[in-house]
Amino acid sequence: MAADRPCFPTSIHRSTPNAIRLNRALRMSRRDALLGALGAAAVVTGSRQGMAATAGQDDTGVPLFMALSQRLTDRDTLDPRIGNALYAGIINAVPERRDQIQKLHDFMTGGSFASARALASAAEHQDPVFKDVIQDIMTGWYRGLADHKVVVYRSALMFDITKDAIYPKTYATGGPFYWTQTPPEVAVPTGEPALSPSKLVIEPT
């Protein structure tokens, strides 16, 4: 047991978040130094210099990634800011993806694919690794994730295609009790999958 020693500032009794911020700015405590040394779990300080910085706008892979993404989402327009950040995350997680994206792009331009499904289905047939590339791209645009990190949240396409019915959590702008209203009906889908199925692994909470 450590000896009692009167070193803890009594002002802690009155500490408020703002006072704490000020204190932080004014002194680097032993604790902070210690934590810095420990690497303090896997927590990163919240700067915005995220992954977007690792792939410059001029990365030659980005236009290919955008062209592929448009075909694979069956969309004419996609946000290039999101595309940049997704591409950076995807190649950061798996560096081989840079080449694979290039090859998949070549494959796309070498043929004639009228839909996402046509391209995806043929690509997996051509090389099974393309399935992983395509699913990374789908996860990126629809879920807003790359490299196991959030790239976009509310701007992920999964929320765009459901916005007539539901809001992303924490961005519910229907006003109080909007939820009592009847949401739109949804027809049973008729489309076929393009890729072979994978086992869905739900992350434990």
Binding site: I20, Q49, G50, D79, V151, S155
Partner: peptide, 23 residues
């Protein structure tokens, strides 16, 4: 009309630093 491109980073519960206006 701007996408919410994010850091994907979390801050520890005691990290109370001031964020920028947009955040």
């Amino acid at each position: 009309e701007e996408a919410d491109v994010r850091s994907g980073d979390l801050t520890r519960i005691d990290k109370l630093d001031q964020m920028d206006g947009a955040q």
